[in-house]
Amino acid sequence: MTKQNEQITLAPVPQEELAIFKTECQEAFMKGLQDSFPEAEDPTEMGPVPSDEDYEQLNAKESVVRQLVLNGERIGGVVLQINNDTQRNEVDFLYTKANVHGKGLGTKAWEAIEAAFPETEVWELHTPYFEKRNIHFYVNKCGFKIVEFNHKGNPGPNVEGEEPESDEEYEFFRFEKVMVKVSSES
């Protein structure tokens, strides 16, 4: 169990640890895939999730990459897109290591992310339709709302021009969390 007063902090990922960070992120996402489809053949045969190309493309977009640190140890990480003009910010990847699942640390990690970016007006993210644990986490623990279902007939703006091989390839929920600003004028 975690202690109530334990704080998760966000810290830059040292350049020499970016490859390890990427591997941890891919391992966390592959675990989610394996947990969702235990009867499937080895999902690692299709390559890492997110793919190396997806991960590199995110870095090319000048992403904000942070490690989630608890008691001096990295317990996960997050890759964000921060738009300083609109403050409509996006979560590309958020993961915690398997050994900290079920301890309330994901919720504390999300609270740390919100605290680190207090000017955010809207948070947005996507998660696959089959990731029940993620859906529960974002809706029930973090206060997100499902605002769109992307699929082959409605692939969303991020996949325009691509032809999906199957409908399942693009079945994602788009979530939003509108941040409530507390007015100091009372």
Rank of each mutant, 00 (worst) to 15 (best):
T96V: 14
E168T: 01
D52P: 03
V178P: 01
Q26Y: 11
L58Y: 08
A109W: 00
F37P: 09
E41Q: 14
V147A: 11
V78L: 02
Q87S: 05
Q57M: 12
F137C: 12
L10Y: 03
D42I: 12
E119M: 09
W123N: 05
N158W: 04
E90L: 04
T96G: 06
K181W: 02
E165G: 09
F21M: 09
K61R: 14
K132W: 05
G156W: 02
I75W: 00
K3D: 10
V64D: 01
A40L: 15
M1V: 10
G153H: 09
E111H: 08
G143R: 08
Y138N: 06
E119V: 03
D85H: 04
P14R: 10
I135N: 07
S186A: 09
F130G: 05
L18K: 13
A40G: 11
H151E: 13
Q67V: 03
Q15S: 13
E111W: 01
R74D: 01
M179D: 00
P38H: 15
E160C: 03
D35S: 08
P118T: 10
Q7R: 07
I82E: 00
Y138C: 08
R74Q: 04
V139I: 12
I75G: 04
P157E: 15
W110P: 03
K152R: 12
V178Y: 11
V122R: 12
N140H: 09
A115G: 07
Q57F: 04
F144K: 05
G156T: 12
E6Y: 05
A19T: 15
N83E: 08
K22N: 08
E90N: 04
G106D: 10
V65M: 02
L105E: 09
T23I: 13
D54I: 14
F29Q: 13
V182H: 05
T44Q: 07
V100T: 10
S36G: 14
Y55K: 02
E163T: 15
F172T: 02
R174W: 06
E45C: 10
H151N: 15
K145V: 11
T23F: 07
A98E: 11
N59M: 14
Q4D: 07
Q34M: 15
E119P: 01
L18G: 05
E17D: 15
A98T: 07
P155T: 11
I135S: 08
D92A: 06
P164F: 02
L94Y: 04
D167I: 04
E41I: 09
I20T: 14
P38D: 15
E73S: 06
E41K: 14
I146W: 03
E39K: 11
A11W: 00
E24Y: 08
N150F: 13
V49R: 06
E24N: 14
A115S: 13
D167S: 12
K177I: 04
Q7W: 01
A60H: 06
